[in-house]
């Protein structure tokens, strides 16, 4: 029997189940979720309903399971890959989770909407909830050292290109580490830069986290942002156009590091990824903004508020084989 199923069957209280559910949403591969689905009759009804919900989200746009496997690099860093040793050159996608240790939607859902034959995904998170101000716990204590550690752990030269994405509190980490590693592009989803004028600081204080002088040297950010802005990495800051805090965050990124802010109309909340997902456009969004030609996808100034209709799915997708998505846009 699948190990994950065994773990679920060993749970005794709702809290046990919820802990494992949250962990699964933050760590699992699409295959893990598919396995849970196969054993759903052996699971408690609420767990079965939850796993079917995740499965439904996974198959919003893609039908063939992306066969990622997870290789743990550190407690909070994992590489997801479908590599089998005979692959064409790949791209490395750095993915910085937000406060909930996911990419606004569950990790297996995101992986399932990526092209596993093209991307390896290096997933990083900061469970200390300090939005990477002290790097990635148990990996490297600031983002500069995170970049150095990635260089040591991953053969970047073996990749065709490096790209990065970060959601919410991971947005600025995506920009920072992406630029430091010479990423071709870096994406922030509903992110905002840390700084004394932002409400995140008040949130940390409210939650009792110390922001002593050592951790609140915001001049560091000015120097850091100055160094990011002159690098060649193209920075794209996506936001819900009707959600003022995220609009402000994207504008701050524009001013601080020269990012291009791109808003989607009709989104009045923080979770932009979920809005894209529920419209069955997440694979299309990734195809366009993670892999598309930058000259074609960056809208000109003054036209950076988009409708979701701008993410027109292609009429037909090529068969990408056993590791690819074969039936996109199926209902």
């Amino acid at each position: 029997m699948n190990l994950l199923v065994e773990h679920f069957m060993a749970c005794r209280t709702p809290a046990d189940f919820y802990r494992l559910q949250i962990l699964t949403e933050c760590d699992a591969t699409p295959n893990d979720i598919a396995s849970l689905s196969r054993y759903r009759t052996m699971l408690p009804p609420e767990v079965s309903a939850w796993s079917e919900n995740i499965r439904a989200m996974m198959f919003m746009q893609a039908k063939t399971v992306q066969p990622f496997r997870r290789e743990l690099i550190s407690r909070n860093v994992a590489l997801y890959t479908t590599r089998n040793g005979q692959d064409a050159p790949r791209d490395l996608l750095l993915a910085f989770c937000g406060l909930a240790d996911r990419l606004q939607v569950p990790v297996p859902v995101v992986l399932q909407h990526l092209d596993g034959s093209r991307f390896d995904v290096l997933l990083l998170r900061d469970p200390s909830k300090r939005i990477y101000l002290q790097g990635v716990p148990e990996y490297a204590p600031d983002l500069g050292l995170v970049a150095e550690r990635i260089r040591r752990d991953i053969d970047l030269a073996g990749y065709r290109s490096v790209r990065s994405i970060g959601t919410s509190g991971g947005g600025w980490a995506s920009f920072t580490v992406g630029a430091m590693l010479g990423a071709e592009r870096a994406v922030s989803m509903s992110g905002k830069p840390p700084g004394p004028t932002f409400h995140l600081v008040r949130m940390w204080e409210k939650r009792g986290y110390s922001l002593n002088d050592q951790h609140a040297d915001f001049a560091i950010f000015e120097r850091l942002y100055g160094s990011i802005a002159v690098r060649s990495t193209r920075l794209l800051a996506f936001f819900g156009a009707d959600h003022q805090p995220d609009r402000d965050g994207a504008e701050a990124f524009e001013q601080l590091v020269g990012a291009v802010g791109i808003g989607f109309r009709g989104v009045d909340h923080h979770n932009l990824m979920f809005d894209i997902l529920k419209r069955k456009l997440l694979a299309t969004f990734f195809d366009r903004y993670l892999t598309g030609d930058l000259d074609e996808i960056v809208p000109p100034p003054g036209e950076r508020l988009l409708d979701f209709s701008s993410l027109e799915p292609p009429a037909a997708r090529p068969d990408l084989g056993t590791t690819g998505r074969q039936a996109l846009n199926a209902s």
């Binding site: 209280t13 709702p14 809290a15 919820y18 802990r19 559910q21 949250i22 609420e46």
Partner: peptide
């Protein structure tokens, strides 16, 4: 889910 986990862990209140 986090709400339920906290109540059960901190106060022994089992909630779904």
């Amino acid at each position: 889910m986090e709400f339920c986990i906290f109540l059960e862990t901190e106060f022994g209140i089992t909630l779904t």
